[in-house]
Protein backbone atom coordinates (compact mmCIF):
# COMPACT_ATOMS: atom_id res chain seq x y z
CA UNK A 1 0.00 0.00 0.00
CA UNK A 2 1.50 3.27 -1.14
CA UNK A 3 0.95 6.23 1.13
CA UNK A 4 1.22 9.90 0.28
CA UNK A 5 1.38 13.03 2.43
CA UNK A 6 -0.07 16.43 1.51
CA UNK A 7 3.06 18.35 2.47
CA UNK A 8 6.21 18.22 4.58
CA UNK A 9 4.30 19.28 7.69
CA UNK A 10 1.93 16.32 7.35
CA UNK A 11 4.87 13.99 6.74
CA UNK A 12 6.77 15.32 9.76
CA UNK A 13 3.76 14.93 12.01
CA UNK A 14 3.44 11.32 10.77
CA UNK A 15 7.10 10.79 11.74
CA UNK A 16 6.65 12.51 15.11
CA UNK A 17 3.81 10.09 15.90
CA UNK A 18 6.23 7.21 15.39
CA UNK A 19 5.20 6.48 11.80
CA UNK A 20 7.39 4.08 9.80
CA UNK A 21 8.09 4.85 6.14
CA UNK A 22 8.23 1.93 3.69
CA UNK A 23 10.03 1.70 0.35
CA UNK A 24 6.98 2.21 -1.89
CA UNK A 25 5.61 5.22 0.02
CA UNK A 26 5.67 8.64 -1.66
CA UNK A 27 8.14 10.14 0.79
CA UNK A 28 9.39 13.73 0.34
CA UNK A 29 12.52 13.91 -1.83
CA UNK A 30 14.57 15.57 0.92
CA UNK A 31 13.80 12.67 3.24
CA UNK A 32 14.58 10.10 0.56
CA UNK A 33 17.94 11.80 -0.13
CA UNK A 34 18.86 12.06 3.55
CA UNK A 35 18.02 8.42 4.31
CA UNK A 36 19.75 7.23 1.17
CA UNK A 37 22.96 9.16 1.91
CA UNK A 38 23.00 7.76 5.44
CA UNK A 39 22.53 4.14 4.33
CA UNK A 40 25.02 4.52 1.48
CA UNK A 41 27.70 5.71 3.92
CA UNK A 42 26.88 2.82 6.24
CA UNK A 43 27.10 0.32 3.35
CA UNK A 44 30.43 1.78 2.17
CA UNK A 45 31.77 1.58 5.73
CA UNK A 46 30.79 -2.08 6.08
CA UNK A 47 32.55 -2.90 2.81
CA UNK A 48 35.69 -0.91 3.67
CA UNK A 49 35.70 -2.34 7.20
CA UNK A 50 35.31 -5.88 5.88
CA UNK A 51 38.31 -5.41 3.61
CA UNK A 52 40.42 -4.14 6.53
CA UNK A 53 39.45 -7.15 8.58
CA UNK A 54 40.24 -9.44 5.63
CA UNK A 55 43.80 -8.09 5.47
CA UNK A 56 44.38 -9.71 8.85
CA UNK A 57 43.13 -13.22 8.04
CA UNK A 58 46.62 -14.58 7.22
CA UNK A 59 48.30 -12.62 10.01
CA UNK A 60 46.33 -13.35 13.18
CA UNK A 61 48.18 -14.68 16.22
CA UNK A 62 46.62 -18.15 16.49
CA UNK A 63 43.65 -20.09 15.19
CA UNK A 64 41.15 -18.73 17.71
CA UNK A 65 41.63 -15.19 16.45
CA UNK A 66 41.74 -16.36 12.84
CA UNK A 67 38.22 -17.75 13.22
CA UNK A 68 36.98 -14.50 14.68
CA UNK A 69 38.61 -12.44 11.92
CA UNK A 70 37.11 -14.72 9.26
CA UNK A 71 33.69 -14.38 10.85
CA UNK A 72 33.93 -10.61 11.15
CA UNK A 73 35.00 -10.32 7.51
CA UNK A 74 32.02 -12.34 6.34
CA UNK A 75 29.69 -10.38 8.62
CA UNK A 76 30.88 -6.97 7.40
CA UNK A 77 30.77 -7.90 3.71
CA UNK A 78 27.36 -9.51 4.27
CA UNK A 79 26.09 -6.36 6.01
CA UNK A 80 27.40 -4.25 3.14
CA UNK A 81 25.56 -6.52 0.72
CA UNK A 82 22.24 -6.14 2.60
CA UNK A 83 22.68 -2.39 2.99
CA UNK A 84 23.51 -1.83 -0.70
CA UNK A 85 20.28 -3.70 -1.55
CA UNK A 86 18.24 -1.50 0.78
CA UNK A 87 19.97 1.65 -0.49
CA UNK A 88 19.50 0.70 -4.17
CA UNK A 89 15.78 0.11 -3.52
CA UNK A 90 15.47 3.84 -2.83
CA UNK A 91 16.12 4.37 -6.55
CA UNK A 92 18.61 7.18 -6.29
CA UNK A 93 21.68 5.22 -7.35
CA UNK A 94 22.09 1.60 -8.41
CA UNK A 95 24.51 -0.61 -6.52
CA UNK A 96 27.00 -0.30 -9.41
CA UNK A 97 26.80 3.50 -9.24
CA UNK A 98 27.37 3.45 -5.49
CA UNK A 99 30.44 1.27 -5.91
CA UNK A 100 31.78 3.40 -8.77
CA UNK A 101 31.40 6.52 -6.62
CA UNK A 102 33.12 4.81 -3.71
CA UNK A 103 36.08 3.73 -5.85
CA UNK A 104 36.28 7.18 -7.47
CA UNK A 105 36.55 8.76 -4.01
CA UNK A 106 33.24 10.58 -4.53
CA UNK A 107 31.30 9.12 -1.62
CA UNK A 108 31.98 8.81 2.06
CA UNK A 109 32.79 6.05 4.50
CA UNK A 110 33.60 6.23 8.21
CA UNK A 111 36.74 8.07 9.29
CA UNK A 112 38.22 5.03 11.05
CA UNK A 113 38.72 3.22 7.74
CA UNK A 114 41.02 5.98 6.50
CA UNK A 115 43.80 4.86 8.83
CA UNK A 116 46.23 1.98 8.66
CA UNK A 117 46.13 -0.95 11.08
CA UNK A 118 49.84 -1.45 11.69
CA UNK A 119 49.98 -4.27 14.25
CA UNK A 120 47.65 -6.88 15.75
CA UNK A 121 47.36 -4.37 18.60
CA UNK A 122 45.60 -2.04 16.16
CA UNK A 123 43.10 -4.77 15.34
CA UNK A 124 42.46 -5.24 19.05
CA UNK A 125 41.97 -1.49 19.52
CA UNK A 126 39.62 -1.39 16.52
CA UNK A 127 37.58 -4.35 17.76
CA UNK A 128 37.42 -2.95 21.26
CA UNK A 129 37.06 0.82 20.80
CA UNK A 130 35.86 1.40 17.25
CA UNK A 131 33.33 -1.43 17.15
CA UNK A 132 31.87 -0.13 20.42
CA UNK A 133 31.55 3.36 18.95
CA UNK A 134 29.97 2.02 15.75
CA UNK A 135 27.59 -0.18 17.72
CA UNK A 136 26.50 2.71 19.96
CA UNK A 137 25.76 4.84 16.88
CA UNK A 138 23.82 2.04 15.19
CA UNK A 139 21.80 1.32 18.32
CA UNK A 140 20.85 4.98 18.51
CA UNK A 141 19.62 4.83 14.92
CA UNK A 142 17.79 1.54 15.34
CA UNK A 143 15.97 2.66 18.50
CA UNK A 144 13.73 5.07 16.67
CA UNK A 145 14.53 4.87 12.95
CA UNK A 146 11.61 6.00 10.79
CA UNK A 147 12.69 4.12 7.65
CA UNK A 148 11.35 0.55 7.96
CA UNK A 149 13.62 -1.45 5.63
CA UNK A 150 16.75 0.04 7.22
CA UNK A 151 15.44 -0.44 10.75
CA UNK A 152 14.76 -4.15 10.16
CA UNK A 153 18.21 -4.74 8.68
CA UNK A 154 19.78 -2.81 11.56
CA UNK A 155 18.21 -5.17 14.07
CA UNK A 156 20.20 -8.05 12.61
CA UNK A 157 23.35 -6.00 12.11
CA UNK A 158 23.28 -4.85 15.73
CA UNK A 159 22.93 -8.41 17.03
CA UNK A 160 26.01 -9.36 15.05
CA UNK A 161 27.96 -6.27 16.05
CA UNK A 162 27.14 -7.20 19.65
CA UNK A 163 28.85 -10.51 18.96
CA UNK A 164 31.87 -8.60 17.55
CA UNK A 165 32.00 -6.58 20.76
CA UNK A 166 32.40 -9.81 22.69
CA UNK A 167 35.16 -10.91 20.33
CA UNK A 168 36.77 -7.49 20.89
CA UNK A 169 36.57 -7.90 24.65
CA UNK A 170 38.13 -11.35 24.31
CA UNK A 171 41.00 -9.94 22.23
CA UNK A 172 41.42 -7.08 24.70
CA UNK A 173 41.47 -9.34 27.76
CA UNK A 174 44.10 -11.56 26.18
CA UNK A 175 46.44 -8.70 25.30
CA UNK A 176 45.87 -6.88 28.62
CA UNK A 177 46.84 -10.03 30.53
CA UNK A 178 49.79 -10.63 28.22
CA UNK A 179 53.52 -9.89 28.35
CA UNK A 180 55.00 -6.40 28.68
CA UNK A 181 55.69 -6.43 24.96
CA UNK A 182 52.04 -7.19 24.20
CA UNK A 183 50.97 -4.38 26.49
CA UNK A 184 53.38 -1.98 24.76
CA UNK A 185 51.97 -3.01 21.39
CA UNK A 186 48.47 -2.27 22.59
CA UNK A 187 49.44 1.07 24.13
CA UNK A 188 50.94 2.07 20.77
CA UNK A 189 47.72 1.09 19.04
CA UNK A 190 45.66 2.94 21.64
CA UNK A 191 47.71 6.09 20.96
CA UNK A 192 46.82 5.76 17.26
CA UNK A 193 43.13 4.78 17.62
CA UNK A 194 41.70 6.59 20.64
CA UNK A 195 41.01 9.86 18.82
CA UNK A 196 39.77 8.43 15.52
CA UNK A 197 37.38 6.16 17.48
CA UNK A 198 36.10 9.14 19.46
CA UNK A 199 35.73 11.23 16.29
CA UNK A 200 33.57 8.51 14.72
CA UNK A 201 30.63 10.07 16.58
CA UNK A 202 31.20 13.35 14.77
CA UNK A 203 31.11 16.93 16.08
CA UNK A 204 28.18 18.13 18.21
CA UNK A 205 24.84 17.75 16.38
CA UNK A 206 23.48 20.96 14.90
CA UNK A 207 20.14 22.15 16.31
CA UNK A 208 18.47 21.80 12.90
CA UNK A 209 19.95 18.37 12.06
CA UNK A 210 17.41 16.75 9.71
CA UNK A 211 18.60 13.28 10.72
CA UNK A 212 17.25 14.00 14.19
CA UNK A 213 14.16 15.89 13.02
CA UNK A 214 13.09 13.02 10.76
CA UNK A 215 13.79 10.35 13.34
CA UNK A 216 16.60 8.73 11.41
CA UNK A 217 18.94 9.19 14.37
CA UNK A 218 17.57 9.35 17.89
CA UNK A 219 20.56 10.65 19.89
CA UNK A 220 22.73 13.68 19.51
CA UNK A 221 26.37 13.00 18.55
CA UNK A 222 27.75 14.62 21.69
CA UNK A 223 25.53 12.49 23.95
CA UNK A 224 26.75 9.24 22.36
CA UNK A 225 30.34 10.43 22.38
CA UNK A 226 30.17 11.32 26.06
CA UNK A 227 28.73 7.90 26.99
CA UNK A 228 31.61 6.27 25.17
CA UNK A 229 34.18 8.43 26.97
CA UNK A 230 32.63 7.70 30.38
CA UNK A 231 32.76 3.96 29.69
CA UNK A 232 36.13 3.54 28.01
CA UNK A 233 38.40 6.02 29.81
CA UNK A 234 38.06 4.31 33.22
CA UNK A 235 38.08 0.85 31.62
CA UNK A 236 41.34 1.44 29.76
CA UNK A 237 42.90 2.89 32.90
CA UNK A 238 41.79 -0.10 34.97
CA UNK A 239 43.67 -2.36 32.56
CA UNK A 240 46.76 -0.23 33.17
CA UNK A 241 46.82 1.71 29.91
CA UNK A 242 47.29 5.44 29.41
CA UNK A 243 44.54 7.36 27.64
CA UNK A 244 46.36 9.54 25.09
CA UNK A 245 44.59 12.77 26.01
CA UNK A 246 46.99 15.33 27.51
CA UNK A 247 44.13 17.46 28.89
CA UNK A 248 42.22 14.54 30.40
CA UNK A 249 40.56 15.52 33.65
CA UNK A 250 38.01 14.16 36.10
CA UNK A 251 35.24 16.30 37.51
CA UNK A 252 34.66 14.98 41.04
CA UNK A 253 31.37 16.79 41.46
CA UNK A 254 29.81 15.61 38.23
CA UNK A 255 31.60 12.25 38.45
CA UNK A 256 32.62 12.61 34.82
CA UNK A 257 35.69 12.38 32.62
CA UNK A 258 36.54 15.19 30.24
CA UNK A 259 38.98 14.52 27.38
CA UNK A 260 39.53 18.23 26.75
CA UNK A 261 39.19 20.07 23.43
CA UNK A 262 38.71 17.87 20.36
CA UNK A 263 40.56 18.68 17.15
CA UNK A 264 38.11 17.98 14.31
CA UNK A 265 40.60 18.62 11.50
CA UNK A 266 41.59 14.93 11.15
CA UNK A 267 37.91 14.00 10.77
CA UNK A 268 37.37 16.64 8.09
CA UNK A 269 40.41 15.38 6.20
CA UNK A 270 39.12 11.81 6.18
CA UNK A 271 35.72 12.92 4.91
CA UNK A 272 37.51 14.55 1.97
CA UNK A 273 39.43 11.27 1.34
CA UNK A 274 42.58 12.94 2.69
CA UNK A 275 43.22 10.62 5.63
CA UNK A 276 46.63 8.97 6.16
CA UNK A 277 45.59 5.75 4.40
CA UNK A 278 42.62 6.89 2.28
CA UNK A 279 44.20 6.66 -1.15
CA UNK A 280 45.69 3.20 -0.63
CA UNK A 281 42.48 1.83 0.83
CA UNK A 282 40.25 3.13 -1.93
CA UNK A 283 42.62 1.76 -4.59
CA UNK A 284 42.77 -1.58 -2.79
CA UNK A 285 38.98 -1.79 -2.70
CA UNK A 286 38.77 -0.92 -6.40
CA UNK A 287 41.44 -3.48 -7.37
CA UNK A 288 39.73 -6.08 -5.25
CA UNK A 289 36.42 -5.43 -7.00
CA UNK A 290 38.09 -5.84 -10.41
CA UNK A 291 40.02 -8.95 -9.42
CA UNK A 292 36.89 -10.72 -8.17
CA UNK A 293 34.71 -9.81 -11.13
CA UNK A 294 35.12 -13.28 -12.65
CA UNK A 295 33.60 -14.87 -9.55
CA UNK A 296 30.48 -12.69 -9.78
CA UNK A 297 30.24 -13.37 -13.54
CA UNK A 298 30.53 -17.11 -12.97
CA UNK A 299 27.85 -16.99 -10.27
CA UNK A 300 25.52 -15.00 -12.53
CA UNK A 301 26.04 -17.46 -15.38
CA UNK A 302 25.51 -20.45 -13.10
CA UNK A 303 22.22 -18.89 -11.97
CA UNK A 304 20.93 -18.72 -15.58
CA UNK A 305 21.81 -22.34 -16.44
CA UNK A 306 18.85 -24.67 -15.77
CA UNK A 307 19.66 -27.18 -13.02
Amino acid sequence: MTRTWADMAAFESFLDDGGIVEVDDHMPDEYRQAVFAFIEMHANSELMGGLTERDWIPRTPGLRHKMSVLAKTQDEIGHGHLLYMVAADMQIKTREEMLEDLFAGKSRFHNVFHYQAVTWGDQVAIAFLVDAAALASQQAVFKNCSYGPYRRILKRIISEEGFHMRLGEDRMMRIAQGTDTQKEIFQGALDRWFWPALQLFGPDSKPDDVLLRWHIKSERNEVLRDKWVQKFVPMLQSYGFTVPAPDLSYDEEAGKWDVGPIDWEPLKRTLAQGGPDSARRINEAKDNWERTRWVRDAMDRAATVPA
Binding site: V23, D24, Q74, D75, L82, M85, R156, M299
Partner: peptide, 24 residues
Amino acid sequence: EESMFGPSRCRSVNRCTACAETVE
Protein backbone atom coordinates in the same frame (compact mmCIF):
# COMPACT_ATOMS: atom_id res chain seq x y z
CA GLU B 1 17.75 -15.98 -3.86
CA GLU B 2 19.79 -12.84 -4.43
CA SER B 3 23.09 -14.27 -3.20
CA MET B 4 24.25 -17.61 -1.83
CA PHE B 5 26.32 -15.71 0.68
CA GLY B 6 25.04 -13.61 3.57
CA PRO B 7 26.69 -12.29 6.71
CA SER B 8 27.04 -15.80 8.06
CA ARG B 9 27.82 -19.22 6.59
CA CYS B 10 24.43 -20.55 7.62
CA ARG B 11 22.49 -17.82 5.75
CA SER B 12 21.81 -16.74 2.17
CA VAL B 13 20.34 -13.41 1.05
CA ASN B 14 16.91 -13.45 -0.61
CA ARG B 15 14.39 -10.90 -1.79
CA CYS B 16 10.63 -11.07 -1.41
CA THR B 17 8.79 -11.24 -4.74
CA ALA B 18 5.84 -9.26 -3.32
CA CYS B 19 7.00 -6.64 -0.78
CA ALA B 20 10.66 -6.50 -1.97
CA GLU B 21 11.94 -7.02 1.57
CA THR B 22 15.60 -8.03 1.91
CA VAL B 23 15.40 -11.36 3.73
CA GLU B 24 18.10 -13.61 5.13
